[in-house]
Write a protein that binds this DNA or RNA. Sequence first.
DNA 1: GATTGGATCGCCT
DNA 2: GGCGATCCAATCG
Length: 193
Amino acid sequence: MEKLLYDFFCRDTIVVAEALLGKILIYHSSDGDIGGRIIETEAYLGENDEACHTCRGKTPKNAAMFGTAGRNYLYRSYGIHLCYNITTDIPGMPSAVLLRSLEPLFGLEIMAKRRPKAEISRYCAGPGNLTKALGLDISLNDSSLLESDSLLAIYDDGYQAVEIVSKPRIGISKAQDLPLRFYLPGFSSLSRK
DNA sequence: GATTGGATCGCCT
DNA sequence: GGCGATCCAATCG
């Protein structure tokens, strides 16, 4: 599989959010490789997007989004969950793509330990479930996806998306009308339809 | 210095 | 479909 590099992520955030659908996310963890196919994303468009964490400027928490494209942005949500994003776009555009769900493909036995009561199709369904199933940690925040030894990486295995659906983003209180959630219809691991 | 409010989830009825 | 869990910087006073 071909690892995706800077040129893939250094593009318009909406383009990247759609292009990531069908790609493979792998966490090369100390427990082994774990991951799957990306089937649901959301685009957060930087300082002009009221729903994006960078809309009020740079803070210690959101600093990763002000870095170059192809970096990991993780933050705690509702005090409980972690959400995992990948930074996008050219320097000066602090934007990112939220990964909302994966079709599990690698490390299913590890996921099973982390999601003991869930069905396989629900292991990575939703941003909080995804980070829990993979075992991602806040310490991965602001690390790179692009280094040859990076723990997280995105790969292209040649899969071609047949159809992409766009809908309003989930769970936000501002800019609720923008259709910036993208998913591959038909997958049982979607957080919702 | 205290309050607030989330890019959620799973269990309960 | 309602609610409690639980974090922490930004915001307000």
